[in-house]
Write a protein that binds this DNA or RNA. Structure first.
Lengths: 115, 115
DNA sequence: GTGATATATACTGTCAAGCGTATATACGTC
DNA sequence: GACGTATATACGCTTGACAGTATATATCAC
């Protein structure tokens, strides 16, 4: 994936918010992202598919849940850009609220406790 | 300017190439950018106008020439992203050729010698 | 098998980005 | 003033991204 594509992918609010959340949390399933972002499920799913096809995130199934995380094989400069961005934006809206909504979410599947 | 807008601006090849060149060279006029990028003048001019309106670059006139440079007042995380990106991409195509074409350009206005 | 939940995809319409072309504006020289 | 060069902008067009809705697929419980 070339750099232009990388940036154009970050240039959409839903994807950027999802990536910042993933950077923060490590791994999240679609329903967690849908809840935290406050969006319809197909919207989130489509953007995640795009991120997956671009190689920015990895997905694996765990029961009914698809878990997404930042792709470990990402070029280092891209990972650094994501880290810097998440750090710089983490304290602002809407990223704060996203994280808060995630924290308040009931019945989170939880990759560790009930997989 | 929010982060999404910032990234969507980087997500266009012409703008990214122009920004990498500006990061490298410090300051360039429109005709230098047009020559280095190998594009029609209105294309370059429109993208520069967009970068200017977004606050990513500053412009000042010097005689007939408009000189552009990265905006000094850029948020530090954005400047760092640009630096990292330019460093990571500087050795690849098309950024190498852009810089080469610029170097080979005859009759460069030159901000220092003939302003 | 049926039904419930989680996720992905297909379809359709809308909207905005971008390009090529032509033209306008600004500056310098005469 | 006229003319040439550098740059900016306006116009018309095309194309692709995205959303909402509906539907398909996968997994689990029974």
């Amino acid at each position: 994936m070339d750099a232009t594509r990388f940036f154009s992918i970050l240039g959409h609010p839903v994807r950027l918010r999802a990536l910042v959340l993933l950077q923060r949390e490590g791994e999240l399933c679609v329903c967690e992202l849908t809840h935290a972002l406050g969006l319809l499920q197909p919207v989130v799913s489509r953007h995640l598919a795009l991120l997956r096809e671009a190689g920015l995130v990895d997905a694996h199934r765990e029961g009914q849940w698809m878990h997404y995380r930042l792709a470990p094989g990402l070029p280092s400069w891209q990972r650094e850009v994501l880290e810097q961005t998440a750090t710089a934006l983490g304290g602002q809206e809407p990223y704060v609220s996203d994280a808060a909504l995630l924290g308040e979410m009931p019945n989170r599947p939880g990759s560790r406790c009930c997989a």
